[in-house]
Design a binder for these strands. Structure first.
Length: 462
RNA sequence: GCACGGGUGGCAGAGCAGCUAUGCAAUGGACUGCAGAUCCAUGGACCCGGGUGCAAAUCCCGGCCCGUGCUCCA
């Protein structure tokens, strides 16, 4: 089996070969914590959580770094309006991020560097770029000069310098007053009065948006690393800017072996975004769907494709997720094996995941196993594939506790239900359907669902 | 406008050259007083027009349509 990964830069799936055999260095652009996490964040970090898990399942040692952009214009806007320090806003949303991601079984990365803890390295990197002539000091900050490395333009998006100039029209003119060329981008922004700032050779200020990722990856991984991930929208300008910064700083290229970009979450066919006002936070979604059901939904489309989110889509996923947990619970409680041959499912699952992490195809195999008979072998299979690899299962303790609780709840009403059912059977025997249905309605009103079968009625709690 | 990606059954959504995708829904049957659940079965799709193949959702060319990027964004 060969793991193949789609690389945005070469626009093809390539066998994964890493700098050091058996080891993967992976950097994923993290959030700017100025608001609670939304479903777009969930999709991204879920996607890379699966990458993380599958790389480990495939025997790689993974060093996973994900940053927090904890100082930024939007954070400052909010901290100003609330009259609190920027760190209050950032920390609040970082805590929230971890809470919702934990709930969705997202494994922790190895490092979560923050911009404000990487200032020294950022200043060093900017200094090097200035020294090498790739950056200049403008009136309001330090800028990277695109024309010093024009050959690096468009590696991820295919755009040329001329296209960007023509296409962006007048809109870019207003950004960055100290730029020589509108395509240049800020490495260091000088502070305006009252803004939080750090001392630098160019005056007090803070880092531009792009430089942090270059500085952090250099700090943690060195001049080259294997996988760089992020949302599709980050390809330009953010990731192309990183290529400029990192490669011009170290002189080593390419800085990244495989660029991976996840597709968007859409609502009614349009990108979900704050500016369109059509976004849902992760927490909102938890109101109606279990965290792992949401995970199920977001993994049921391959990570590169857009997901068009609808209530039906989420309900569908919830149905499947419930079935998965039910099958897992039944298999945990089962004596003996199912007798089904699960080898084919394992093979197809592995082939699917090896093909650029095709979670959709892999989950079809999970659905197949879910539909098979209960047994300890099924429980083991589900733990390995649906659980460890896809992160879709609650712990066995949790599932067993859930079953025990359900038994308890059932026991509490059992006596009364059995009495009513006995009366109903009497009514049915004498063909008194009105009375029988009346009793069924009564049971239904206290949350008991009655189902008649060949061996008499069975019941369960709604 | 330019760049990148996509257009598959009622819906969601895989497949990306030859073999039933799958799920939900639908239809028929079994079971049933009815309902529900379950089981079995069935139908139904590849945006349009060319081209290359023995063979094309699948590759190539040309349209049309949609999304994203070109400005902060996962």
């Amino acid at each position: 089996m060969t793991l193949r990964v789609y690389d945005t830069r070469s626009r093809e799936k390539r066998k994964l070969t890493t700098l050091d055999d058996g080891k993967v260095r992976m950097y994923v652009c993290g959030i700017t914590p100025y608001s609670p996490s939304h479903l777009g964040h969930a999709r991204c970090y879920l996607a890379f959580d699966v990458v993380h898990r599958w790389l480990e399942a495939s025997g790689f040692e993974v060093d996973y770094v994900q940053n927090f952009t904890d100082i930024d214009d939007k954070i400052l806007d909010i901290s100003d309006s609330e009259g609190v320090d920027y760190s209050v806003v950032a920390n609040r949303n970082i805590d929230e991020y971890f809470e919702v991601m934990d709930a969705m079984n997202v494994l922790r990365a190895d490092h979560y560097p923050r911009v404000t803890e990487t200032i020294t390295e950022i200043i060093e990197m900017v200094s090097t770029l200035v020294d090498k002539g790739h950056a200049y000091v403008g009136g309001d900050g330090v800028y990277f000069e695109i024309d010093t490395a024009p050959e690096k333009y468009g590696q991820l998006t295919g755009q040329t310098l001329e296209m960007v100039r023509a296409g962006a029209g007048g809109r870019v003119e207003k950004t960055g007053s100290g730029k020589r060329d509108h395509r240049d981008f800020a490495l260091w922004k000088l502070a305006k009065p009252g803004e939080p700032s750090w001392e630098s050779p160019w005056g007090a200020g803070r880092p531009g948006w792009h430089i942090e990722c270059s500085a952090m990856s250099l700090k943690h991984f060195g001049e080259h690393f294997d996988i760089h991930g992020g949302g599709h929208d980050l390809r330009f300008p953010h990731h192309e800017a990183e290529i400029f910064q990192s490669e011009c700083c170290t002189g080593r290229e390419p800085v990244v072996g495989y660029w991976m970009h996840n597709g968007f979450v859409n609502v009614d066919g349009e990108k979900m975004s704050k500016s369109l006002g059509n976004f849902w936070t992760v927490r909102d979604t938890f109101e109606h769907h279990a965290p792992l059901a949401l995970r199920y939904a977001l993994l049921s489309v391959p990570y590169r494709n857009p997901i068009d989110l609808t209530p039906e889509f989420l309900e569908d996923a919830t149905t499947h997720y419930d079935r998965l947990v039910e099958a897992y619970g039944a298999s945990l409680s089962a004596d003996g094996e199912s007798g089904d041959d699960l080898a084919g499912a394992s093979e197809r699952f592995t082939a699917a995941m090896d093909d650029d992490f095709n979670t959709r195809a892999a989950m079809i195999e999970v659905q197949g196993v879910v539909a098979s008979a209960a047994g300890s072998d099924v429980a083991n299979w589900l733990e390995q594939y649906a659980g460890d690899a896809l992160g879709l299962l609650p712990s066995s303790d949790e599932v067993m506790a859930g079953l025990a609780q359900a038994d308890l709840a059932r026991a509490e009403v059992a006596e009364r239900v059995e009495a009513l059912l006995a009366e109903r059977e009497g009514a049915r025997d004498s063909s008194d359907w009105a009375r029988a249905d009346e009793i069924r309605d009564e049971l239904s009103s206290i949350g008991v669902i009655v189902e008649d079968g060949p061996d008499g009625p069975t019941w369960h709690l709604a």
